[in-house]
Amino acid sequence: MHNHDLDLVAARAEGSVSPADATLVDEWISTCAECSQEFESQQLALDSLRLVEPAALSDIERARLHRGVREAIAEVQLGKSPQAHPAPAGGRWLKLLAGSAAAILVLVVAFGVVLPSFGGRDTTSADLALEATQTSVAAATPAPSAAFGINDDATVAEAAADAAGMDSMVGAPPLLQLGELTPEDLANLSIPIEDFGLARATPLDQDEPTRQAPLPADREAYRQAIEQPLTCSEEGLSLIDGGPIWFGIATIDGRLIELFRSETGLIALEASTCVLVFPTD
C-alpha cells in the first residue's frame, strides 16, 4: 500500500468519504489485504473513541477551578508567585458558614434593614427579601423578635434560593444580594457595631441554639442556599481583626462585593478577585 492511500483509508474509516465514492473505495480496499487490515484498525480505534463522551467539569469542580484561579490571580496582583492548588471544597469557615446558615440569613437581612439609615440612599429597589423585610419592620434598628420574625421565611428562602441559582463566573453565587450601593454607602457602613442590633447579639458559634430558630419553612431551598459559600471567606476572615460576626454581599458600581464585619470594623472585598476595596488605606 502506498502512503498516499493512507488518507483514503483514514477518510473512509472516519466516514468522510461521500456516499457516491464510498462503494468505489470499499471495492478498492477489499482488493488489498494490507488496506483492509489498516481500515479495520482505523475503524476499531475510531469506534472505541466515538463511545467516549465529552468531558465536562462538575459544578463542584467548576467552583473549585474558579476559586483557585481567582486566588492565584490575587497572588499575582500582590506580586507573589501563584501555584495551582484548587481550593478545597469546604474549609473550616465554609463549614462554619453552612453550620450557621440561619444566622447568616438573618444577619444579612438585618444588615439590609439597617442600610437605609446611612448615606441617604433609597434601597427599596434591593432584592425582594429585603423589600419584604423593610415593609414589615418600621424601625431602622430592628428588635430581635422583629428580625427573626421575618418568617415570612418563605420569602427569605425564595430569595435565597433565587440567589443560589445565579450563575456567577467569579465563584459561588451569593446567599442574598443586597442591591446596588455606592462607595459612599460603603464608607458609611463603618459605624459603631451597636447600631446593627441583632447582628451583634448573634455570634457565629455553631453551638449557639438561637440560630436554629429562623429556619425557613422551605428547608430544601434553605439547604441549597446555605451550600453556596462566600467566595472570599478565607481572605475576609484572614484580614478582619477580631473575627467576623457577620457576612454580607452587595453590589457596588456593578461589582459584587463581600462584606465582613467584626466588633471593631468592617472590610469589603471584591468578589471576583478577593482584593480589599474597603478600607482602602
Binding site: E61, L65, V69, A72, I73, V76, P82, A84, H85, P86
Partner: peptide, 13 residues
C-alpha cells in the same frame, strides 16, 4: 483540574 487551573493562570499572566 490542577492543570486546567495552571493553564488559565498562565493565560492570565
Amino acid at each position: 483540574l490542577d492543570a486546567v487551573q495552571e493553564t488559565f493562570i498562565t493565560v492570565y499572566r
